[in-house]
Design a binder for these strands. Structure first.
Lengths: 194, 194, 194, 194
DNA sequence: TATGAATGAGGGTTCATTCAT
DNA sequence: CATGAATGAACCCTCATTCAT
């Protein structure tokens, strides 16, 4: 019965839950293990979270807000669309490395269970960000003419997939530079492009 | 009750399991429901599969082999690298639409539970396919010089992510044409490319 | 895993549940103990009853219907109101002895938990029966003039209390004859009555 | 926080416990709620009562002694047995209205859990009181000859049941006058009595 | 082959009780 | 005296798995 500040305990639980949930997924994760990993009793978990679902949702939301806010802030301060998109990639890849386990959990349970709407919103927001950058790039002549909506969807999808690959496959590591080159230049030789 | 051939029963179970697993995920799916959906008794399932895990793995493998083989076969018959890659995309996107529920299951449980190695192998095989196409394209002068390994990883990642987006987000639908344009031409105006 | 007929198992559970519930009350009774007493596994209980509450309600209802129906049937066949009431008492006291443990449970949880309405209805029905007999008795001149509604309530209350006493206090045993004498004659000497 | 005298706190707890226990029954009542209702901390409860059981027993005993003593005192001062019994009924019915919630708790948990002996003793004492009154009445010629022990048991049982009905069924309200009439005169027309 | 009743370990959750402050 | 975070045993319920038929 070590006395800890409530905030400290809550934080410990969140960290432990993150580890366990992302390793096992929501359904297979169990409270006993989370409690143990947090160095707290089973009942202790229920002091801070009403139930398993609440704990999970709280986890997802807080992390998503944290990441989301960081991504938003940096988007505006770029000089050109190219640079903005480049920054966007850089941030996402950095985040991917930093929150690898969250990414896994996030993707794994996406579309299932709860918090679906929050997740969908998160991705949609990111997509809108990209779309805006693309339109800016087309206006400034940096980017070729294309359907910004479609392009944004593809780029966001690609980013997601690349991040997923990095999280899942140990031998995949994509740097911002590589990603830039890929997205900006495409695969064809200059002369072959339409 | 009804005498069925073993193969018939097994097939029914697999189909039912696919539906249930992809809807609920591995952990929340339960044998009772699968049996019911297959029109068979609970015990009947255990006549064909040693346990839940076995059933799941068998599912993943059979589907993965089926899809994988179809993808492999068609890869060789293209006239140019550009066409080969284009075909590859087309096939994958078609598959994605056709086996949407499998894709979801596949991604959801990827990296967790069992069958991880089989899944990894599947993706690696696909990556190698792409890598070969890229090298062929570079030799023929179709594609610009780049690190084929890196590029293959990025393309495979992108493809995965785009397929994932299509499966998860109702408002995302990417056509082969859109994907070609994106991957081949990149985002920059012709003049801006390096 | 002894194979029993479903009905046999269900009956065993009901008997065991009756014993445990009436000994401990609803809240303190636990499924493990009921299962054990029924010679069945915990999960087995849930094969026949959706949950603890369902088991309890099923118990109460079936028993109440059984007892209620027996009481109803015999009420009509009496020659006089005196005889009818006398029969009514006899039946209730017999029931009390026969279903002692149920009586305890019934009273204990009355007004609490679930099945309250069913219980209330049961008592109200009994009261109406008595009221009818009283009115018949007053019409025939057997019974003195009184408020039938009030009288029925008092008689039903008395009966309940006497049965309760018999169930709770080991040294209380009331025979139909004693009860008749009490209810019919009252306590006063003949000359003192108004 | 607020310094209170121990006695004040203890009283608050007892009142709160009475309310909660009688609403939910012993098993479902919980200390947290009692503490809250008493405006005291959880730990505070344990300063005055060793545990839940102790609190409950203390509750029952104090209330029972209080009620019991009031009933005893008034019993002696009656001029006739008829009046004594009448007073007895009046007091009990008054008590029933005044301590409705206690009655419910009392009956509900009677025969179970703890404090059984105290409860039994309480009722036995009341019964003895009635028995004495009956014998006095028979000696004075007020009451007809009967088995005083049996009669006392029946009267006590009836009283209990009537009080129970009043506590449980909203539509039952018995006045002392009604009860007197019932017990003293019985149901039969004067001429029909034996 | 096929059935489905039966098993029992294990998971989510509650709550009486303790104790550092 | 008083607090309330922490504990952990015990409860209800689920479900993969078995096996007598």
């Amino acid at each position: 019965m070590n006395k800890r500040s409530g905030i400290e305990s809550k934080k410990k639980i969140i960290d432990a839950a993150m580890a366990v949930f992302s390793t096992k997924g929501y359904a297979k994760a169990n409270i006993r293990e989370i409690a143990k990993a947090a160095g707290i009793s089973v009942g202790g978990v229920y002091l801070y979270f009403r139930n398993k679902e609440e704990l999970y949702k709280s986890l997802i939301n807080s992390k998503m807000h944290y990441i989301g806010s960081r991504l938003e802030i940096t988007a505006g301060s770029a000089e050109s669309a190219t640079e903005a998109l480049s920054d966007f990639f850089k941030l996402h890849l950095e985040n991917a490395l930093k929150h690898k386990e969250f990414i896994l959990l996030h993707i794994r349970e996406h579309g299932f269970a709860f918090g679906v709407n929050e997740k969908r919103q998160f991705f949609r927001k990111q997509r809108t960000l990209i779309e805006n950058i693309i339109q800016r790039g087309m206006r400034s002549g940096e980017f070729r003419k294309c359907n910004a909506d479609h392009m944004a969807k593809m780029i966001m999808g690609s980013l997601r997939g690349i991040i997923l690959s990095m999280a899942l496959d140990d031998d995949v590591h994509i740097t911002p530079k590589m990603l830039n080159e890929f997205v900006f230049n495409g695969l064809l030789t200059a002369g072959k492009r339409d």
